[in-house]
């Protein structure tokens, strides 16, 4: 899988051109910019309402032998969620629109750019967008005193990896979508992950069977990884989390590139 990608000889220039197209599109219209900005506020609002608001009712809790305020517990999860949503917004709705309706990729494939370069370019742009959310959110967390500045820096790459994994997976899923209706399913799935990935309560408090299900889902690994770094307590388990996300990124990219090829190059 990985070798297939390497032997495909990606051209950085062409991948950059695909990313550049999105930068041009962003500059071209204010509507796109609005969508982008709104994506930042969602997790911040959750953090304030639940982390700080509900947190004042919940009190402190203990994770890995450390005592945390509820807001400290929820904030890293919201960081992971914001990385996930930022990347997904770009690689699901926007990607699907370009793939199916605007025929943007049809036009691009008539040039030297290849499907795998479209996949990398689109994911690259999703990462740019995702890292803007992530960076801004970390600043908010630091300003609210919910993370030590040093550990905020450590959490940044973890959040970026989260964006990469979800961006790639979102792109892969988008190639399977039949129409906009299918996105309702995706939103539901995304919301379920948002609620039950150890975001608002520790997974060990779940029933045992459910706990195993959660262990298999991606946002759980992202939350674990980001939270461990944000609270300054990384362990060996985080290697598993990181491995899971990396595998998800590679598989998603490979699948998406293959599907674009199968769909458009016939």
């Amino acid at each position: 899988m990985v070798t297939a990608m390497v032997t495909a000889r990606l051209s950085p220039g062409r991948v950059g051109a695909v990313m550049g197209r999105n930068v041009d599109a962003l500059r071209s219209g204010p509507s796109y910019l609005l969508v982008l900005v709104s994506g930042f506020f969602e997790p911040v609002l959750y953090l304030l309402s639940i982390g700080v608001g509900v947190g004042s009712l919940v009190g402190d809790l203990t994770v890995d032998g450390r005592t945390l305020s509820y807001a400290q517990f929820v904030a890293p999860a919201m960081l992971a969620v914001s990385a996930m949503s930022g990347a997904l917004a770009e690689t699901t709705f926007n990607f699907f629109f370009k793939l199916k309706y605007a025929k943007v990729f049809d036009a691009i494939l008539a040039t030297p750019v290849r499907p795998v370069e479209i996949a990398f370019g689109e994911l690259g742009w999703a990462m740019v967008r995702g890292s803007m959310y992530t960076g801004a959110f970390l600043v908010v967390m630091t300003a609210l005193g919910l993370v030590e500045p040093v550990w905020a820096l450590a959490a940044l790459p973890a959040a970026l990896l989260t964006g990469l994994a979800f961006g790639a997976a979102g792109m892969a899923v988008s190639t399977l979508m039949r129409g906009w209706q299918d996105f309702d399913l995706l939103s539901t799935g995304q919301f379920a992950l948002f609620l039950f990935s150890g975001t608002f309560s520790p997974v060990r408090d779940y029933p045992a069977a459910l706990e195993w299900v959660v262990h298999a889902t991606p946002l759980y690994h992202a939350v674990e990884l980001v939270r461990a770094l944000a609270i300054g307590a990384p362990g060996w388990g985080q290697l598993v989390n990181a491995g899971y996300l990396a595998a998800m990124a590679v598989a998603g990219l490979w699948f998406a590139a293959r599907r674009v090829d199968r769909k458009l190059c016939v």
Partner: peptide, 15 residues
């Protein structure tokens, strides 16, 4: 297959 997110000139320069 013109790009709806770009203006006329950008459709050429981006391409």
């Amino acid at each position: 297959t013109l790009d709806p997110d770009l203006n006329v000139r950008e459709n050429l320069t981006t391409y």
